[in-house]
Nucleic acid binder design. Sequence first.
DNA 1: CTCCAGGTTATAC
DNA 2: GTATAACATGGA
Length: 229
Amino acid sequence: MIREYLALDEDPEAIAAHFPRDAFLDDAVRFCGGIRVLRQDPWECLAGFILSSTKQILHIRQIWRKVSDLWGPELSLPVGHHAFPGPSVLAKRTEKELRGCGMGFRAPNLLAAAQAVDSGRLRLQALREMPTTKAREELVKLRGVGEKIADCVLLFSLGKMEAFPVDTWILKVLKHAYFRGHRDITPSKLRFFATTHFGPYGGHAQQHLFHYIRMNPHLVAQPSKVRSK
DNA sequence: CTCCAGGTTATAC
DNA sequence: GTATAACATGGA
């Protein structure tokens, strides 16, 4: 299951001492109270984020649940619940079956990823031992996996703490916190800033920024569109 | 009934 | 290289 954050038992200041601090990050660190980066199973992480593109988190959970209920191994606890199926199980399903779970155009992408992992063509654990950029290159070879999803897998399941996933929310918060009033700020420039400014533990900073802005969306709220009737 | 969502990809300035 | 549209689906 995709979980976003875990509660903390470490000193927030110590954890956040790994990346460059500024006034905005100080606010985020104070607000987040010491969140940690996930350590998900790599296959589950990859599958989950392949399902995530242009989907609301609620929808992703619904799809995840359907796939698990249909083909996933039964868990002893909670009684009656199922885990997400492994790549070998999903690799034997059809695109049509997967579409039946509501994942739309992501179905062939998930199926191909399952087959790549199941066949041994893609060894997720091996990516752990490779430099981040090399591991990212391997992940991006998959259909439906771009820079953002690759960085999520690197950060949340492969221990690459410098990986800095840039999604729509991170785009908003970077603009707000570091480039307010600037013109000609493109997503490309923001990506470059993010990957060069936050350092080897940038992914940890990313989690603070993401959580902070999702819990306080008004900070980056656009002027509401006037709708005529 | 429209709008848009933890993006990616193909195609056109 | 950078901007736009298409892509399926369903909750708001």
